[in-house]
């Protein structure tokens, strides 16, 4: 009997679902073993039929997301948090910084393209106070972060869940698969705003460009750094950052870069803090990051704390 797969998208960009279609001809092989009973990117199914595997993309942002997620959990046996938004909140998690009221006021009242008297529409699912990863709402059985998850890992995950023997999944950072040579240099300056560097075989950190490869889980086969763009941290923090409260994205990157280039750690750390909405964009609404004792993204980005509830 074919295994039944049901998928749902919440607050995300649907890119993770498109990544499933990126399986290309593998998808055809897969369809021999599985039956998609619900997959919004390919078919229209409003209900939540019973399934063996549930795949959920996106974070919980609205009352609709919450209800849909609970229905998914109730209808599937194994639930996968699919993509970085589902696992950590993702880029829409920046809403965690601001709170519901200030966002609605800004969008409907203080926007140049809207009148100042416009009100938020009614009769639509209500925006929640903050953005939360799905594992804060329901029990999640597997996490498959990535923005989007790499088709290799999608195929691996589904095949493994179907019982096929697969290679052990490692949990190393992006650097482990990056081909660039990390080397010590002198006379390097911090290149603020840069995401590329002149030498293609040498590590970005050695060249003064902030790259998040060493603090990011490798679920991408290091595609960006190997093709010339510094890692943006899209698969979320590495296990060391997740598990150890004293390690943080900014401190570990600053430490390594400082040791490699001689640029003062303080300077690098300040820069990352100033640009926290960029460097923390994928996981800032996850407790993994905001509960860290020294991470104060609201302070760094000068967001007034009155706009958001404490602790969410």
């Amino acid at each position: 009997m074919k295994a039944r797969i049901s998928t749902e998208w919440l607050s995300g960009c649907s890119g993770c679902h498109v990544a499933m279609v990126d399986l290309h001809e593998k998808l055809v092989n897969l369809v021999e073993d599985v039956e998609f009973v619900r997959i919004p990117v390919l078919m229209d199914e409003k209900g939540y039929p019973k399934a063996d595997i549930g795949i959920v993309e996106g974070a919980v942002r609205s009352s609709h997301d919450r209800e849909a997620l609970l229905k998914m959990r109730g209808s599937v046996r194994t639930l996968i948090a699919f993509g970085t938004c589902a696992s950590y909140g993702g880029p829409s998690g920046i809403g965690w910084l601001h709170g519901k009221k200030s966002i609605l006021d800004k969008v409907y009242g203080g926007n140049p393209t809207t009148g100042s008297q416009e009100k938020a529409p009614t009769g639509v699912p209500e925006l929640e106070e903050s953005v939360v990863p799905i594992d804060e709402v329901v029990k999640v059985d597997f996490q498959l972060p990535g923005c989007p998850p790499h088709p290799y890992h999608i195929a691996l995950a589904i095949r493994t869940l179907l019982g096929a023997p697969g290679p052990a999944l490692d949990a190393k950072p992006v650097c482990a698969q990056c081909n660039r040579k990390m080397e010590k240099r002198t006379g390097v300056t911090l290149l603020k705003g840069a995401v590329t560097a002149p030498e293609k075989d040498v590590c970005f950190l050695s060249q003064g460009v902030v790259c998040l490869g060493s603090v990011t889980l490798n679920r991408c086969q290091a595609q960006c750094p190997n093709r010339g763009v510094a890692c943006a941290g899209c698969a979320g923090p590495s296990p060391a950052i997740i598990m150890e409260p004293q390690l943080d994205i900014r401190t570990m990157v600053a430490r390594r870069m400082g040791l490699l280039t001689g640029i003062p750690e303080e300077e690098i750390r300040k820069y990352i803090e100033e640009e926290a909405k960029t460097f923390y964009s994928y996981a800032l609404s996850s407790p993994v990051i905001y509960r860290k004792p020294t991470v104060e993204i609201r302070e760094w980005t000068s967001v007034p704390s009155s706009g958001a509830r404490e602790g969410i």
């Binding site: 059985d141 597997f142 972060p145 999944l169 490692d170 949990a171 997740i242 993994v288 509960r291």
Partner: peptide
């Protein structure tokens, strides 16, 4: 003594082998 249960559970789901 100081590891957070939520974080450990999340890490365990990322890669069952670690």
């Amino acid at each position: 003594h100081y590891h957070d249960e939520y974080n450990l559970r999340l890490a365990s789901l990322l890669a069952p082998g670690i």
